[in-house]
Design a protein around this nucleic acid. Structure first.
Length: 651
DNA sequence: CCGCCCACGC
DNA sequence: GACGTACGTGGGCGGA
């Protein structure tokens, strides 16, 4: 079968049978298939088929009759691949240029749309009932994008989804999930590149909108065709790898949730940020002057290279200064911190660094990301990037808004409710990863600690130091907290020592005590690594797998890294599964109750809502309840909630 | 344009 | 004794 990773490695010519294909009447434009002009094959080289040498029937549908026939054909099929062509990559502002469909291997239809024509909406509306039919299965590659485009154009896709990108993410989360990569790996096929249509990436790249629709047609139909073929390929593979539940019940339904959250966006207070930018600028100038004065010269303080040379070549602050692998001096926070507090310059440099980061990454960047038509910022959640199963957020990244420092936290005041009839609700899981590790490992002591409702770090300290919870000191609690976190990441004595600023031997003792008291945890960590060695993968609570190819590596460092992944991935991944389930449940319930409030953000263990004042109590109760019930663990799940005019107040 | 360094979150 | 905490995104620098 062509449907196998690495199929592209095989010699050309052994998988050309397209037999068994039904040929529909529409296949009148069949391109004749030539199989004798590509016989030269480099030894071992990948040989890819292309549109030029592959049987296909792609149809350009540019009149009312053609569309009517296509729609009635699609209405008779239970599932089809769907793709949109657009004028840009932003689904909220782009124009739609066309839609393509495929129902079986080798076929495809392209329906051009021109938003400059008065009748463009009529064309879209002809397809509306079909696309809004909840009984269809709609197959797409990164279908969230197409759903958003269509929603923007007034069509609410509602069917069961099969996203080939997400399917491959389930099959191999560490892999690449782009369509071209997938087509080459699994179908031995190299799709027409978008660059042949609109030019190379960069400023000069053209737009689909400016092309002759007929020129787009084959490219677009091919995309739908390939997507359909990938679906055929991935569906059994997902099942084979125990991924049916996480794929069909979590990832695909989540697409609709993320669609709505992204399109909803979040309101950002431009004036507040503009004021704050001024304040930061003022302080930045002061810090920089201070540094230059103490250094005795001016230089680019944003350049780690120049800074390192000033500190270590000129001022000779540390004769044993560490260098990076590229030969520069290390100047990161930990390094500078160690130089000692006696150097006044260090404090000013670190202040400058913090202020620069805040200003450039957040305070100045966010207002520029406000969508002029909604007045809100709309992040994109990536669902197939983090190998553990977590989401990521970009453009802007709203999952790394500062909170640790006072000056950083201020930024959160800029995230505000949509109007004075709304407030922000923040709900977050308490200690979710530790609860999950307690549950997965079955460690009696940790389960008991959570069941007692005690503060977990205090409970841990009491155990490790053999004292009562009341006797636990601040230092003991923070040591215990550091170990608890270290456990999740597979940290060793070295890391813990560094973290706590203690000797390695001390750290080692603490860890040993820890594992004596939480023997079940130690057992879990050993077991999961052993399981990874035997099977080659680890799994989350929903069956989400991560393959760890390096788990038996002869290279100590590489193997150790894989072992830490073996420990961490099921924990982090199960937490990701958990909140995704909660999001799907909450989204469904909000829709069912037809609430005015909206879910707007997810930050790994936290959800953010824009809440109508009339729904405050109802929503808070419903959300925390569904979060806590999302999975049944051996320990209680606890979700906390808070309201505020802005994100800082609510959290 | 891209790799590196650094820093923000969970 | 190696090596030294998981997962991300992004800004600015500096060299190609």
């Amino acid at each position: 079968m062509a449907c196998k990773k690495g199929a592209n490695k095989r010699l050309f010519g052994d998988d050309f049978s397209v037999g068994g294909q039904k040929v529909s009447p529409e296949m009148s434009q069949m391109n004749l298939f030539e199989d004798d002009d590509k016989a030269e094959v480099g030894a071992g080289a990948a040989t890819l088929n292309t549109i030029e040498n592959t049987e296909h029937n792609y149809i350009f549908v540019n009149d009312a009759k053609g569309r009517k026939d296509l729609i009635s054909l699609l209405e008779k099929t239970k599932e089809f691949a769907f793709d949109t062509e657009t004028s840009s990559l932003d689904p909220l502002t782009c124009e739609i240029v066309g839609m393509s469909f495929s129902t079986e291997k080798g076929n495809g239809w392209y329906v051009p749309i021109n938003e400059d024509d008065a009748s463009w909406k009529d064309v879209v509306n002809e397809f509306k009932p079909l696309l809004e039919d909840p009984s269809k299965t709609i197959i797409g590659q990164n279908i969230k994008y197409d759903i958003q485009v269509m929603k923007q154009k007034g069509v609410q896709i509602a069917g069961t989804l099969f996203d080939t990108m997400l399917a491959h993410y389930i099959i191999d989360p560490d892999g690449k999930h782009g369509m071209d990569d997938l087509a080459m790996s699994y179908l031995s096929y190299e799709p027409v590149s978008i660059e042949t249509l609109i030019g190379k990436k960069g400023k000069k790249q053209g737009s689909m909108k400016d092309l002759d629709p007929e020129k787009i047609s084959d490219y677009a139909s091919e995309d739908a065709d390939i997507t359909l073929q990938l679906k055929e390929c991935f569906a059994p593979e997902v099942k084979e790898r125990n991924g049916s539940k996480v794929f069909h019940e979590i990832e695909c339904p989540l697409v609709y949730v993320l669609t709505d959250m992204e399109m909803e966006g979040i309101r950002v207070d431009k004036d507040f940020l503009s004021n704050y930018s001024g304040e930061l600028q003022k302080e930045l100038g002061e810090r920089q002057e201070k540094v230059f004065e103490l250094a005795g010269e001016e230089f680019n303080l944003n350049s780690p290279k120049q800074l390192g040379e000033v500190l270590f070549d000129r001022l000779k602050l540390d004769p044993k200064a560490k260098k990076t692998k590229t030969g520069q001096y290390k100047t990161d926070e930990a390094t500078l911190q160690k130089l000692g507090k006696d150097h006044e310059i260090v404090e000013s440099i670190l202040d400058f660094r913090q202020l620069t980061k805040l200003k450039s990454t957040y305070v100045d960047a966010l207002p520029q990301m406000i969508n002029p038509s909604t007045g809100r910022v709309h992040t994109t959640f990536q669902q197939a990037v983090a190998a553990t199963g977590r989401l990521s957020s970009y453009d802007p990244n709203l999952q790394n808004i500062p909170i640790r420092t006072q000056k950083g936290r201020e930024v959160r005041k800029a995230f505000i409710a949509r109007s004075d009839e709304f407030e922000i609700l923040s709900t977050d899981y308490s200690q979710v990863e530790l609860r999950i590790v307690a549950s997965i490992s079955g460690d009696e002591a940790m389960i008991e600690a959570f069941n007692s409702g005690m503060d977990i770090h205090t409970a841990t300290a009491a155990r490790v130091y053999g004292i009562t919870p009341e006797e636990v000191s601040r230092d003991q609690r923070s040591s215990a907290k550091a170990v608890n976190f270290g456990i999740i990441y597979g940290q060793g004595a070295f890391g813990l020592a560094q973290n706590l600023g203690i000797k390695r031997t001390e750290a080692k003792e603490i860890i040993e005590q820890y594992f004596t008291k939480y023997a079940g945890l130690k057992q879990y960590m050993d077991d999961v690594v052993k399981k990874a060695r035997e099977t080659g993968y680890v799994e989350t609570l929903t069956g989400r797998r991560r393959y760890l190819r390096d788990i038996n590596s002869a290279n100590f460092t590489v193997k150790s890294f894989a072992e830490r992944n073996a420990i961490n991935s099921p924990i982090q991944g199960s937490a990701a599964d958990l909140i995704k389930i909660a999001m799907i449940d909450i989204h469904a319930e909000m829709k069912k109750r037809d609430l005015k409030s909206k879910m707007i953000l997810q930050v790994h263990d936290e959800l953010l809502f824009d809440v109508h004042l009339s729904e405050k109590d109802e929503l808070k109760d419903m959300v925390t309840d569904l979060m806590q019930k999302a999975m049944k663990l051996k320990v209680p799940l606890v979700a906390d909630a808070g309201f505020g005019a802005n994100w800082l107040e609510a959290h």
